[in-house]
C-alpha cells in the first residue's frame, strides 16, 4: 500500500502531466450516451464540460474517476504511462456530499483525510475548514448543516488532500457568492501548482483560460445493442 502512496506523492511533482481521453464511448442501460469522444488537458489547464442534460458530462467524470467503464476507448496519463491508477490521483466531487450526519464536521473531514491520504501524509483538516471559512462549524453535527454548508464541507476535501486531478460535478450548486469566490481562488491556486481541473457546469465559473468542451458538438450516434439493424430487415425476429 505504501508504495502506491509514494507513487501518488511523486505524481504531484511531475510538471507537464497530460491527461488524454481517446475515442471514449459511454453506454448506460444498453443505450449509447456518447461515442468517439476525445479530449486532453495538460498541467495547469482546466476543461469545462458543457452540454444538455443527459449528454454524458457526469458520466465522463465518473469514467475518469474509475466509477464507470468506458465501452470503448481509453485514458492516458502523460505519454503512454498507464501504470498509475487514475482514481487514486483524482478528487471527484459529486452531487452527493459523502458525509455522515451522525459525525461532527471535524470527524467527517478527519475520516476522509485519514482514508484518502493514507500513510504519513499530514492532511490537516484545519486547511479545509479555513478554505471555506467553516472553523466555527467544526464541532457541529453534520446533520445540522444547510445544503450550502454541506457542499462546502465536500469541497473541503480538495483543499486538505493534495491530488493532481480535480473532477468537479457542478461544484457551485448551492453555494453563496462568497463561497464561490473561495472555490475560485482554490481552483486558481491548484492550476498555479500545475494541477488539472475538469468540471461540469451550467454557469460560467469565471476561470480565465479554461478550455470549453461542448457535448452538443458530438455527432449523434444511433443506438446499437446486441443486434444490427440488418437483423430486422432479414426478418429474423
Amino acid at each position: 500500500m505504501d508504495s502506491s502512496f509514494d507513487l501518488i506523492n511523486s505524481m504531484l511533482y511531475i510538471v507537464g502531466m497530460k491527461l488524454t481521453g481517446k475515442a471514449l464511448s459511454c453506454e448506460r442501460g444498453g443505450r449509447q450516451v456518447f461515442d468517439g469522444l476525445d479530449f486532453s488537458v495538460e498541467s495547469g489547464g482546466m476543461l469545462e464540460l458543457r452540454g444538455p442534460n443527459g449528454a454524458g458530462k457526469t458520466s465522463l467524470l465518473r469514467m475518469i474517476a474509475g466509477l464507470n467503464e468506458p465501452a470503448r476507448g481509453e485514458f492516458e496519463i502523460q505519454e503512454g504511462d498507464n501504470e498509475v491508477n487514475l482514481a487514486q490521483i483524482c478528487h471527484f466531487i459529486a452531487h452527493q456530499e459523502a458525509f455522515k450526519p451522525a459525525l461532527t464536521v471535524a470527524e467527517n473531514l478527519q475520516f476522509w483525510a485519514d482514508f484518502l491520504s493514507g500513510s504519513d501524509d499530514k492532511a490537516d483538516i484545519s486547511v479545509a475548514l479555513e478554505a471555506f471559512s467553516m472553523e466555527p462549524l467544526a464541532e457541529l453535527s453534520a446533520a445540522l448543516l444547510s445544503a450550502g454548508q454541506k457542499r462546502r464541507l465536500a469541497l473541503g476535501r480538495l483543499a486538505m488532500i493534495k491530488r493532481p486531478i480535480w473532477l468537479l460535478d457542478e461544484p457551485t450548486v448551492g453555494l453563496d457568492k462568497k463561497s464561490v469566490g473561495q472555490l475560485q481562488s482554490l481552483m486558481r491556486q491548484h492550476l498555479d501548482e500545475d494541477g488539472i481541473i475538469i468540471a461540469t457546469t451550467h454557469i460560467d465559473l469565471g476561470m480565465e483560460g479554461a478550455k470549453v468542451f461542448d457535448f452538443a458538438t458530438l455527432p449523434e450516434r444511433a443506438d446499437h445493442g446486441m443486434y444490427d439493424d440488418a437483423d430486422l430487415e432479414e426478418g429474423m425476429l
Binding site: 444498453g30 443505450r31 443506438d223 445493442g225 446486441m226 443486434y227 437483423d231 425476429l237
Partner: peptide
C-alpha cells in the same frame, strides 16, 4: 430472451 431484449431495444429507440 433474445427477442425480449430486442423488443426493449426497439422501445427505447422509439422513445428516443
Amino acid at each position: 430472451e433474445l427477442r425480449k431484449h430486442k423488443i426493449r431495444q426497439l422501445q427505447m429507440q422509439a422513445a428516443k
